[in-house]
Design a protein around this nucleic acid. Structure first.
Length: 569
RNA sequence: GAUUCCGUAGCUCAGCUGGUAGAGCAAUACACUUUUAAUGUAUGGGCCCUGGGUUCGAAUCCCAGCGGGAUCACCA
């Protein structure tokens, strides 16, 4: 990597760092710091005169001669700290206050303070500092927003690119961003405890798989050297969890990082988190009850209420949710009844609705297109859409009352799918046929390779109890619960194109600048126009070069009466 | 993939019909003992995303590229 150009402030901080060392202070001490309190707890449970010891980053400094205020930010928030010169330095030597505190501490530095609690004249809970230690020096200034008296934030660090690339800085300066991730973890914990209390078991299944299954999506491929085989990164964990049901577990669940090699936008990241749960001896009706109770529980755990705001919508996760069959949904929004219709009739109906469909689409796909186009967006409040066409659901049991349908539901919120569940198909012969149909279907139209997972079929042949399974897109769900329109906002480190480092030009002269300088050096002083001619550069290049040379302060340009004279400095 | 907008100081953003780059905050120095967007005075700080073109002259106009946002399309 070439020379990194440091900004003025970064250089200053490095100089301060050396000064701190010269004073015999270690800017990165090894010893633990005996923290015994947190900012938020101190404020919530304020006790005048109590001695506390806390640590964090300095986020603001207000120096007023012999006394100063600063704000310390720890993991729970901020608290004001008060530094008084004569309390901090009771003797003659005022270095600790005048030099170390006032000059060596920058915003962003970690310090630890010990002191007594008090309230200022304006009533702000504060710590009167008796001792402080530098815990870690910060060499790069934080992008610090300021909040004014009316609570308005100025200079907010808002550029999404910078925020995502430097999430660490985003988290330090944007407390609302940190909140999103605190809520994300609360959601996972709430779900986990709900399942555990129901008696189900959290498990782990392979992420590197010889056959990517359980969904139709383009996988990432990698190579295992020792086995010399390709391995695929998981696109779903469904088939593995069902194997465990075959193995005799009553209920298993997994939070699974899935990887799909497809487009990226504000609702798709190449890696995302799904939760899948499979419960033996249940069907999709039971699963609907379970899902609505689960989501109500999670919404309360995350936000303290079943209500959530998403954009312009106010949604309520309070159970129970409306249940609408796909047939009724389409009937309601298009007036068309799909029941008993042939592929041709549905195709024509879709065309008539102005939906972009083609011959490669089977009946199921056509119905899905109609639903996606005309119905989906209308379901704002949590709604179960039930009984999907068979063709779209190769892992789902045929409906007990209608052989064209499956026992499947999706949960829609704000027009988007956040959960998908089945009465799982456990007839091994049917399952094999469905896989084969799927294979044919994929050969008919698209480029996605399909595999038949023979081992999964073997497992089913041993027998799987009737089972219901549910998958929830965790990222989507947390978007709804935190009112974020983009998945990048709910992932700590969303995928981005790699950043380029170290490509900045150093302080040296460029090739062109060197050439021109060499020509000039021979005579020492020249007419500017002569030099331009000799250089043979275009106007643009000439301009850039001469400006560069002046910026490097190696040449002088003087104006006489009628010409410009350039000379070596 | 298509359309569109954006890229200027550490941060947030101005910069007109082309004429040597601006503000606030942050930084530096000084003053100031309960402030809170502390205040006052002074100072420093820029490959104006990159490359090419037009022009006497480009942050500004044109072309290409890179990066990002938004919308749409694709996506069981």
């Amino acid at each position: 990597m070439s020379i990194i150009e440091l900004s003025d402030q970064e250089i200053q901080r490095r100089e301060t760092l050396s000064k701190i060392r010269e004073m015999g202070i270690d800017p990165y001490p090894a010893a633990l710091y005996p923290v015994d309190n947190f900012s938020a707890d101190i404020k919530a449970d304020f006790e005048e005169g109590k001695t506390v010891c806390i640590a964090g980053r300095i986020m603001s400094k207000r120096i007023m001669g012999k006394a100063s205020f600063a704000e310390l930010q720890d993991s729970k928030g901020r608290i004001q700290v008060y530094f008084n010169r004569d309390e901090l330095c009771p003797g003659e030597d005022k270095t600790l206050y005048n030099e170390v505190f006032k000059k060596m501490l920058d915003l962003g530095d970690f310090i630890g303070v010990k002191g007594k609690l008090f309230k200022t004249q304006v009533g702000e809970p504060s710590i009167d500092v008796q001792e402080f230690s530098i815990l870690s020096k910060s060499l790069k200034p934080l992008p610090l927003p300021k909040t004014d008296a009316e609570g308005k934030v100025h200079d907010a660090f808002t550029d999404p690119e910078l925020r995502y690339r430097q999430r660490y800085a985003d988290l330090v300066v944007n407390p609302h961003v940190k909140d999103v991730f605190v809520k994300r973890t609360k959601l996972f914990n709430a779900m986990r405890s709900f399942f555990n209390e129901a008696g189900y078991m959290e498990v782990e299944t392979p992420i590197l798989q010889p056959i990517p299954g359980g969904a139709a999506a383009r996988p990432f491929i990698t190579q295992h050297n020792a086995l010399d085989i390709p391995l695929y990164m998981r696109i779903a964990n469904e088939l593995y969890l069902k194997r465990l049901i075959v193995g005799g577990f009553d209920g298993v669940y997994e939070f699974s990082k899935n990887f799909r090699n497809e487009g990226m936008d504000r609702t798709h990241n190449p890696e995302f988190t799904a939760m899948e749960i499979y419960v033996a001896y249940k069907d999709y009706n039971w699963m609907m009850d379970f899902t609505e109770r689960l989501l109500e529980h999670c919404a309360i755990a995350v936000n303290g209420t079943t209500k959530a705001t998403f954009g312009e919508h106010e949604i309520d996760f309070k159970a129970p949710y409306k249940r609408v069959t796909m047939r009724d949904a389409i009937l309601e929004f298009t007036g068309f009844d799909i029941s008993g219709k042939s592929e041709k009739e549905i195709y024509d109906a879709a065309k008539a609705m102005g939906i972009d469909v083609d011959e490669t689409m089977g009946k199921g796909k056509l119905i899905d297109e109609i639903f996606g186009e005309k119905c989906e967006g209308n379901y704002i409040q949590p709604t179960f859409i039930i009984d999907y066409p068979k063709e779209m659901s190769p892992l789902c049991k045929t409906h007990r009352d209608n052989p064209e349908l499956t026992e499947r539901f999706e949960l829609m919120v704000c027009g988007k799918e956040i959960a998908n569940a089945y009465s799982e198909l456990n007839d091994p012969i049917d399952q094999r046929e469905r896989f084969e149909d799927q294979l044919k279907l994929s050969e008919r139209g698209d480029d996605e390779a399909m595999f038949i997972d023979q081992d999964f079929l073997r497992a089913l042949e041993y027998g799987m109890p009737p089972t219901s399974g549910l998958g929830i897109g965790m990222d989507r769900l947390i978007m709804f619960l935190t009112n974020n329109q983009s998945i990048q906002e709910v992932l700590f480190f969303p995928q981005m194109k790699p950043e380029k480092f170290g490509e900045k030009k150093g302080p040296e002269l460029s090739e062109q600048e060197k050439e021109v300088f060499t020509i000039l050096e021979k005579s020492g002083t020249m007419n500017l126009n002569d030099l331009k001619e000799k250089s043979g550069l275009s106007n643009k290049q000439w301009d850039k070069t001469i400006k560069g040379l002046r910026a490097h302060d190696v040449v002088n340009v003087e104006k006489t009466e009628n010409e410009l004279i350039i000379s070596v400095k």
